[in-house]
Design a protein around this nucleic acid. Sequence first.
DNA 1: GTCGGTCAGGTTGTATGCAATCTCATTATC
DNA 2: GATAATGAGATTGCATACAACCTGACCGAC
Lengths: 233, 233
Amino acid sequence: MTQPIAQALSARLRDMILAGEFQAGQHLREVQLAQLFGASRTPVRLALAANEKDGLLEYSPNRGYVVRPFAGEDIAAAFEMRAQIEGLAARKAAERGLSPEAARRIAETIDTDARVLSGDAPLDDGAREAWRANNAVFHKTIIEAADNRFIGPALQTVQRIPGVYPPVLASYDPVLLRKYNGHHRRIGECILARQGTRAEFLMREHVFEAGEDILTSLHPAHGPTQDLAGAAE
Amino acid sequence: MTQPIAQALSARLRDMILAGEFQAGQHLREVQLAQLFGASRTPVRLALAANEKDGLLEYSPNRGYVVRPFAGEDIAAAFEMRAQIEGLAARKAAERGLSPEAARRIAETIDTDARVLSGDAPLDDGAREAWRANNAVFHKTIIEAADNRFIGPALQTVQRIPGVYPPVLASYDPVLLRKYNGHHRRIGECILARQGTRAEFLMREHVFEAGEDILTSLHPAHGPTQDLAGAAE
DNA sequence: GTCGGTCAGGTTGTATGCAATCTCATTATC
DNA sequence: GATAATGAGATTGCATACAACCTGACCGAC
């Protein structure tokens, strides 16, 4: 965290970058942002430095900050990291075991999602919001159960990517969401059964597939094969 | 990175924290540090914010920064993350394949280490420095070969831990170093053979064991079992 | 016409002053 | 004696002034 105003500016700036309000490579001038935010250069400078640390900006001495570009391979790399780290979280959660409260929350998100997705019609706004919230709770609960203080921050930096920020989520295609709901159910079962290895790899695959689906929705031309799967084999 | 002076101060402050020159929980006052560094509060404030982002300090609004304490379980958690991320790096390096130059560098570190460790006498300073440098090259080469821009930064935050910073390295016990040299050789072989899964798990285990060894050397009383292995099983 | 130098404008880097907040010892009250 | 209120000192938060640096246009030399 940062200072009262600087803290708020850092978050506002981050949201603007994630929302794509700046072009990749754009030079962010301190005075310009200061006027935009109605503050002085001092908190703006802190906000810029914070977002650089988060990987959203690039810094050059005496030249300032530019918006970092994110190409398809960067998004693929981010999902690789997410898959690896959330895999660790699932394994640790299975090994440590869930608290009754955590188990209840996970079961509830899975059941609620299944009910929301049971129909055939495209999802309305309420259903999409319900799914988004449940998805967040599912992953967050597992991450907390893993009880490793480095997991949360590490995940944030690979999740907060312009253009792929969770709210996008593969256009909420019901077919995909039903698939994910199935993943969640099996992952939850593995964790409850204390099967750490299965939980790890199911979670890894779950996140990896979600990344593939998002890349596919971004580049409908060439499938995800080129993007996410490595060159080898 | 940050600004010229602020950048340097950030690194100096980080090194001081890693070297244990502050007590855990100690309040770092801006004017005090500014006098120590011979600068004004402005770059000091940036350095503090940068080290907070790196997880070495904790911030409270209007109260400033205190040195973050690292307990045994934090060190164990950091090695868990390192094992998981370097495992990903090894797998990706195996899947993508090494460049001839990378393969040569890795082979060289392994062979040189084997030669340095061939004797029975405790290592002199030169030998220790040689091992440290080779170890760094070995891991760095694999990380670069993985070609995932999120791996490097993520590893830095879990490697830079007060009291466990690499230079310590389990007191350079030749028995341990020979074991690690064997790990390196097998990991290198797996990567060259494009065996990603084996490379991943050998690397995971390599880092995990190194963490165990360091925790053992820190708490000779209770073995690493309680610290690194989870509660389950 | 091309290359190098120079200067003005603009942008970042640092220092400092003032306001807001916190800390903690002292005092007043019950 | 314990607890709450108060106020002075110290510390952080922000704004602003000045210095250093970079950028790009203009000009002159070859």
